[in-house]
Nucleic acid binder design. Structure first.
Lengths: 138, 138
DNA sequence: AGAGATCATGCAACAGAAGTGCATTTAATG
DNA sequence: CATTAAATGCACTTCTGTTGCATGATCTCT
């Protein structure tokens, strides 16, 4: 059993060939990926399979879904200690308007907001938009 | 000239019948509206017209677009003093997972975040999800 | 190992939102 | 009123997300 297989197994996800490929692909990226990104990376991939794989990954806490304001769902691997399943890992995300990439800023957490008592906050999403490190170089 | 017509005119937007209707509709709501919401409110409305009207409104600073995490673009009228055009009115938004409505919390601004210097922040979007005031009553 | 159950995948199809091109109508201007 | 510019309506396309169903792969239990 490889490392990836162990990881999936630990999360009660059957380590099929496709899933391992998808996991490795996401691990190789330091940016969040959209369904279409994966689809384009693997010629042979079925959109539905990818879709359901990502759903499964998300349910099992392997990835978390990111909404970066592009109206396209993106996904990123959960880092060790990511508690996104219980809405406790509210790190923020950065979306680059130049290269259109989205990254997790896991070190930066969403500050606590004092809402009127009538609102019950359960989750939060903070996206900073601008120019990312790669694009600001030139 | 009515109040609404003046408002549109001030923003260099021709106050056509359709635009006035759309403006009034949005003003009558205290929640952000999606294109489809407007479409359903006016039987005779053409989707394209609404689409382009909202685009125009947004460009001219009459409304601002809200991304509440549903992957459906919503829009809300800018309040007096809303500086969303120059990315200076970073109020947050609340999305109710029960009634699916999204509201502007104009009193609550997004706190400043210290990013690594290589990132150039230009805009920010913070959405709190949970149960809204109406839904938490019962 | 084999039978049966369970889960993953592939294929087809659909729904909804977003967006574009073009012709026509409506409104502004001289 | 004639000309010009802008707004609207219609048709159509693209893209993302989603579901149903049949088939293939994998696990379990004896």
């Amino acid at each position: 059993m490889t490392e990836v297989e162990k990881t999936l197994d630990n999360k009660s996800v059957r380590p099929t060939a496709m899933r391992i490929l998808i996991y490795k692909f996401m691990a190789s990226k330091n940016t969040a990926v959209a369904l279409t990104d994966i689809e384009n990376a693997f010629e042979k991939a079925e959109r539905t399979t990818l879709y359901r794989t990502l759903k499964t990954f998300e349910e099992k806490g392997i990835v978390h879904q990111i909404d970066d304001g592009t109206n396209i769902s993106k996904f990123a691997l959960c880092q060790p200690g990511c508690n996104c399943e219980i809405d406790q890992d509210l790190h923020l995300h950065f979306h680059c308007s130049h290269c259109d990439k989205t990254v997790c800023l896991t070190e930066h957490k969403i500050p606590h907001i004092n809402l009127p008592a009538v609102y019950i906050a359960e989750d939060a999403n903070l996206v900073i938009k601008g120019i990312c490190d790669s694009c600001s170089d030139h």
